[in-house]
Design a protein around this nucleic acid. Structure first.
Length: 471
RNA sequence: GUCCCCAUCGUCUAGAGGCCCAGGACCCUAGCCUUUCACGCUAGUAACGGGGGUUCGAAUCCCCCUGGGGACGCCA
């Protein structure tokens, strides 16, 4: 039987990293077994679901490259189907209407808590109750009262829960709209899902869902409950941990390859291997190897992986992701070196694309001032001669290539009998305004001949002006 | 409160009774490389939560404790 997995987020917010990892695991397992990956939007909560969230989830999935084979299906389009199944259950006596008021239920809950019991519906209407005039009833599932539900979770192992712990859950509200525990079961049956991979906050729901499968005469799928992702402080990941939305990571300049790589290693490993390409993940991943412990999301590791992938991926691929960062930084890629060339030089110097765009500013637009510290240290009168010398050499250079530029700088230093530093540092400050940049040949290469000459002239002017002031 | 789940360096993890006085990676520190900043390379610090068992032998199996998380909705 072909494996069919599904990712079923509810559109009440963005796609966060926890959801993204669940989606990744579903996707990987399907791809690995050449199965089918289904996307389903669980939007039965009309109050909280928004079209923006749906779009954010779709965008996030697309950016990560987690493509689905079927769907997206929307539960709101399937209300007729749920109503139909509810009717069947009612007809078979496997569900019943309940007129209990919320007030009564609330009071019941409080009493049970006070008595040290687990709050559960007491079955007041289970035996058939008198309709309350003017009140639309909810529909409750008639859960077995004896025995226990046992299932073999593919990451947790055997889990057993006594039916005495469960109660008769609501499957339809007074207005007829269905509830979560019911819709998932109906959908997973209708969509032929064979393996349910989801967060372990759903473990407690599983036994009651299995009871519904059985009431419907269906064989439950396999389950795999993956541990949650925690924030860096070990608490459940939430907004206050900063970025949790996948799309925010794109904005911050992370590559999807890096985020995926980081996520896949949370709760899963393959020997000592840390770096995984998409293909390697598919090749080696197995849901059965996922461990049970909740893991904390580590941003520093993501930074490391991001840089790794910026250095490793084809420059053109990285450039594609870099382009939006230029726009965000207000930089025009047309006004400087080709982004592919830039990536080749900058990838090893920063760990996000955002930082790369920022660090590349001098190659795309003129800067107003020299960094005061760098200028003070390197744009001194003694630097005037080397700067003039290298300017003259550069002005006559026919080939503006890293090789030619490296040779030009070295020869000039040799000719003047000074250390490389004596010429490279002032030149660096002249070219970029700061004391930090790629190696001097590459810096020159990126700045370009025309700009380089003009900036050296500015620097020479700055030195002269400063000398005049001090005199 | 009741039920369920979890427990190896700061973090992610390897480890499925002897190969482990516990390995890798990130972070951090030191050194090397070097025209700056990085990259790279080398080295170092750092963990089996506690207590009982079982066993010739336990990080690995069992029990208790402690600590953490989750669920208990007419949310998903």
């Amino acid at each position: 039987m072909t494996t069919r997995t599904r990712f079923a987020p509810s559109p009440t917010g963005f796609l966060h990293v926890g959801g993204a990892r669940t989606a990744l695991f579903c996707w990987l397992q399907a791809r690995k077994e050449q199965g089918v990956f289904i996307l389903r939007i669980e939007d039965t909560d009309l109050e909280r679901s928004t079209p923006e969230s749906v779009q954010a989830i779709l965008d996030g999935m697309e950016w990560l490259g987690l493509d689905h084979d079927e769907g997206p299906f929307y539960q709101t389009h399937r209300f007729d189907r749920y109503a139909e199944v509810t009717k069947e259950l009612l007809a078979a006596g496997k569900a019943y209407p309940c007129w209990c008021s919320k007030e009564r239920l609330e009071k019941l809950r409080e009493e049970q808590m006070a008595a040290g019991l687990k709050p559960r519906y007491d079955g007041h209407c289970r035996g058939g109750a008198e309709p309350v005039p003017g009140v639309d009833p909810v529909i409750r599932f008639r859960n077995p009262q004896v025995g226990s539900v046992v299932f073999e979770d593919r990451v947790r192992g055997r889990i057993a829960v006594s039916n005495e712990e469960l109660d008769d859950l609501v499957i339809a509200r007074p207005d007829g709209s269905p509830t979560y525990n019911f819709t998932v079961v109906v959908d997973d049956i209708d969509m032929g899902v064979t393996l349910v991979i989801r967060g372990d906050d759903h473990i407690n729901n599983t036994p009651r869902q299995i009871n519904i499968y059985e009431a419907l005469g269906a064989t439950p799928p396999q389950f795999a409950h993956v541990p949650m992702i925690l924030g860096e402080d070990g608490a459940r990941l939430s907004k206050r941990h900063g970025a949790v939305s996948v799309l925010q990571y794109r904005e911050m300049g992370y590559l999807p390859e890096a985020l995926l790589n980081c996520l896949v290693r949370l709760g899963w490993s393959f020997g000592d291997q840390e770096v995984f390409s998409r293909d390697e993940m598919v090749e080696h991943f197995s849901i059965d190897d996922v461990n049970r412990k909740a893991a904390a999301f580590d941003h520093t590791k993501l930074d490391w992986l991001n840089q790794h992938w910026m250095k490793t991926l084809p420059a053109g691929r990285v450039a594609t992701e870099l382009r939006p960062q230029f726009e965000a930084a207000g930089l025009d890629p047309a006004k400087g070196p080709a982004l592919e060339d830039l990536v080749g030089v900058q990838a090893e110097r920063v760990n996000t694309l955002k930082a790369m765009a920022e660090a590349s500013r001098p190659y795309y637009e003129d800067f107003a001032d020299f960094d005061p510290d760098a200028a003070k240290k390197h744009l001194r009168p003694v630097a005037a001669e080397p700067l003039q010398a290298i300017r003259d050499t550069l002005a006559g250079l026919a080939a503006w290539t890293p090789e030619a530029l490296d040779a030009a700088v070295r020869e000039t230093a040799e000719r003047l009998e000074v250390n490389m530093g004596k010429i490279a540092q002032p030149l660096r400050v002249a070219l970029t305004g700061s004391g930090m940049s790629p190696s001097i040949d590459l810096t020159l290469w990126l700045v370009g001949q025309e700009r380089a000459l003009a900036r050296i002239d500015s620097a020479l002017g700055f030195i002269a002006e400063r000398a005049a002031q001090q005199r």
